[in-house]
Amino acid sequence: MSTVAAVVLFTGVIAYAVLGGADYGAGFWDLTAGGAQRGRRPRHLVDESLAPVWEANHVWLVFCLVMLWTGFPAAFAAIMTTLYVPLGLAALGIVLRGAGFAFRKVMVRTDQQRVTGAAFALSSVVVPYFLGAVAGGIASGRVPPGGQGDPLTSWVNPTSVLGGVLAVLVCAYTAAVFLTAEARRHEDADLEAWFRRRSLATAVVTGAVALAGLFVLRADAPRLLDGLLSRALPLVVLSGVCGLTALLLLRRAAPRVVQILAVGAVAAVVGGWGVAQYPDLLGTHTTIAEAAAPAPTLWALTIVAAAALAIVVPAMALLFVLAQRGSLDTSH
């Protein structure tokens, strides 16, 4: 039963990494889009494609937190009492980001937009970094079972830095691929090329960092590396294959296909993390079974998750379909 709950939890993590990740990445491109004139069109596209979905995407984070604290309460407390610095900063960043985005859409004057837009874009980069660093801290076993781990080195360490950088890059990559498709839907060839170039660049950089990361892990988190290269190897390979194919097809294939491949690459690598550390929950110790809540709670969670599958997934699908079909009008 506890494994089922862990799978549910990790599915939430994957969904957040993909959907939330694309959101954060869009903020990354917003930040780097250049001055007010030059960056106007990419920013506009980011605004339009993000507006209807960001809140729904963001609920995945809440879902993960709730699954963790209900299904694995002691582990949740351990993580929170150890990694409170990056988590607290991430929470504040999330406020800044959501509010900055919502406010910016109302503003018309460039100078007002600039302030709120900067809040949105900057926190879009900072938040995934912190969340990635948290993942690194957990994966490398720096959260002791009883909590109260080192408040600094638990997230300022090689694996965490790797996690943070990778998170930012992966977000940027997913977003660039999504926005390429979006630009294509709007039949805007310039913008499509703009984002395609960026998809390529981030794909290459992400791949390179991931490879270099293997050496970081060998030195800093050998157990995780072990898992990644044995049990989780199929997923890691799958991720690489998806990523590479997406790169090759970026120019030719339908954007939809590239989108799916990119999602596959991200999902596989995050899933690979989970498989690599199985059966441990806190990286190298505290197994899933040890940390789990009593069975009826896990049942309740599973039922809620099944209900989510039955109700929320169609609803989300409806939202995405309506958005893609252009039934939702988010233009300025």
Partner: peptide
């Protein structure tokens, strides 16, 4: 949360 999350958390999941 550590002690009662297993019970207190359920309504939040809903």
């Amino acid at each position: 949360m550590g002690r009662f999350g297993a019970a207190f958390g359920i309504p939040f999941a809903v």
